[in-house]
Nucleic acid binder design. Sequence first.
DNA 1: CTAAATGCAAAATTTTTGCAGTCCC
DNA 2: GGGACTGCAAAAATTTTGCATTTAG
Lengths: 157, 157
Amino acid sequence: MRAMSKKLQQANLEKKLRDFEQACRSADLKLTHQRLEIFRELALAVDHPSAETIHKRLKKRLATLSLDTVYRTLSTLEKHRLITKVETVESQARFEADMDRHHHAICRQCGTITDFNWRSFDDVQLPHEISGWGRIDKKNITLHGICEKCANAGRAG
Amino acid sequence: MRAMSKKLQQANLEKKLRDFEQACRSADLKLTHQRLEIFRELALAVDHPSAETIHKRLKKRLATLSLDTVYRTLSTLEKHRLITKVETVESQARFEADMDRHHHAICRQCGTITDFNWRSFDDVQLPHEISGWGRIDKKNITLHGICEKCANAGRAG
DNA sequence: CTAAATGCAAAATTTTTGCAGTCCC
DNA sequence: GGGACTGCAAAAATTTTGCATTTAG
């Protein structure tokens, strides 16, 4: 849902990686090979992968990478607010490296999570009913439904 | 966040239970003691409990109730759209029996999930960016932050 | 009666942890 | 070199499943 040229995507990824390295230094996190690759994989992914999925994908390049390192790394990066855990209804946790304000649409058929922006919503005031609740850090929308691809596959097959 | 008199709450619960029994009959789900009590516990709860929490609470009254029955029952009721799994970032799944449109505020300190309504949001049109995504069944807002109670506790202690 | 539901036990899945060795700074 | 990080293995936490028995309709 976010059109972007290949060139721009590449530049974007490189900036993200530079920012990541900087953030690790500031936070006294060591820039290990595994850590860097896990972050890069997540920054590159558009499907909000789980720890297991990231591990599976990296195994091809990093044969010795262990699943518990992936878990530990994701947990560390989340603690330092360099990545986010996505709120879902699934049993496996899913992650993203995009820390800009955005929202999610989840297909309950194929599980794909798609990002979208909604600037006018981001700035709107919350209803009075919840105004006394406390300090709000984030307001996320999650759409649930059936994506176009699955809807068509259902009709076809 | 939803003020309601005790009397109204009681009448509400009774209606929910009647509707539940009716729905079970229509769906050919047997009205077992356990099933009824699990639903009642969830309908009564305001904190969106996990399977384990429901089990713990019911154990006092239903000493023989097993945790796997709670899991199985919640799964069955969710499949029949009589309850919902709440989207969270936690590892334990949390449930609710309130099937009316509403939204959630989650405290990342104490984990409490609070309901709120936002009718004007429910009717608003989605941004163009996501309009071609597919068929949308639900649009949920989740607020993340620190609830008033935890904020005060932090300041005090 | 009969199909569905329960309880028990065991397994599967997902995530976390202790420890010894390795690697970044 | 020293503390943080990794991999291994084992454990913990969460959820699911097979099967014999019980129960609602």
